[in-house]
Design a protein around this nucleic acid. Structure first.
Lengths: 144, 144
DNA sequence: ATGCGTGCAAATACTTTGCATGCCC
DNA sequence: GGGCATGCAAAGTATTTGCACGCAT
């Protein structure tokens, strides 16, 4: 049983929603997707091997997974959209190279404390964060 | 002359694109938009007062502004999309309430230093960042 | 039996593109 | 005059929704 299953089950439980067979199938398929996937491709591939599933159901499940922050929506900027399994839920901090597009996960110890304090001072209760730093990685700086 | 004009002009110059009257009009209108705006609303409002502008031109300009990181695309998650002027290019830090969707800008002094140091240690040259903290704002916590 | 979840199809929203025309260098 | 930018309309893509039906409690 992969983590995604468990995490999604917890989420659904909290929201009084059922973990149906369709949702289980979708999740099982998502964990096998290494790269970001598009809805139509996913659907086609899914309906070829497995029991059929409706587009609406997929979108509804995707929406819940997004809400649970278990997957991520990626807007490619050319009118296409894809979704990606958020493998490391604990690492929301990333450096992204503007040149080669490579994504590096970082883990800044002190950050959580600082941010929690800031939020507290504001009366805001933090639950989740996403930090993206864009720039140039060492590779691209030395071999432009 | 607002900053956005200048910054966009620089961007267009770098990319050998012209800063046409239409683009100037669009930019002039964007800087007056306090809140995130939707394309259709923007277009309707625009074409009421000012010289007419085509939807395609707006989208093409929006794309360039996005690429220049001068505006930001926001996916509300209910099938609607809006765009927002990145007022303070230095301030990308926001708290976003998961319940009411309200966006609060924050300014954490120490953050830039810490992040710069982290990146430096990694050989990464930072240029721009976006920090989003999701949670619950004080309003929604007291009036759920 | 009740109610949530599903699947279909239609509706809606968003974005890009081909092409003719216009404008700037 | 050449070439990029615009505007229109149409095409393409993405996502939501109404409704009837099914399945689990």
């Amino acid at each position: 049983m992969s983590d995604l299953h468990t995490q999604f089950e917890v989420y659904l439980g909290k929201h009084n929603q059922r973990y149906t067979q369709q949702k289980k199938d979708i999740v099982a398929s998502i964990v096998t997707q290494v790269d970001p996937f598009e809805i139509e491709t996913f659907l086609a591939q899914f309906n070829k091997d497995k029991r059929k599933i409706g587009r609406a159901t997929l979108y509804r499940t995707i929406k819940q997974l997004l809400d649970a922050k278990l997957i991520q929506k990626i807007d490619t900027g050319n009118g296409r959209v894809c979704y990606k399994y958020n493998q490391e839920l604990q690492h929301h901090d990333h450096m992204i190279c503007n040149q080669c597009g490579q994504l590096y996960a970082i883990n800044i110890e002190k950050l959580s404390n600082i941010l929690n304090n800031e939020c507290k001072a504001f009366g805001f209760t933090p639950e989740y964060r996403s930090l993206h730093i864009y720039g140039k990685c060492s590779n691209c700086r030395t071999n432009p």
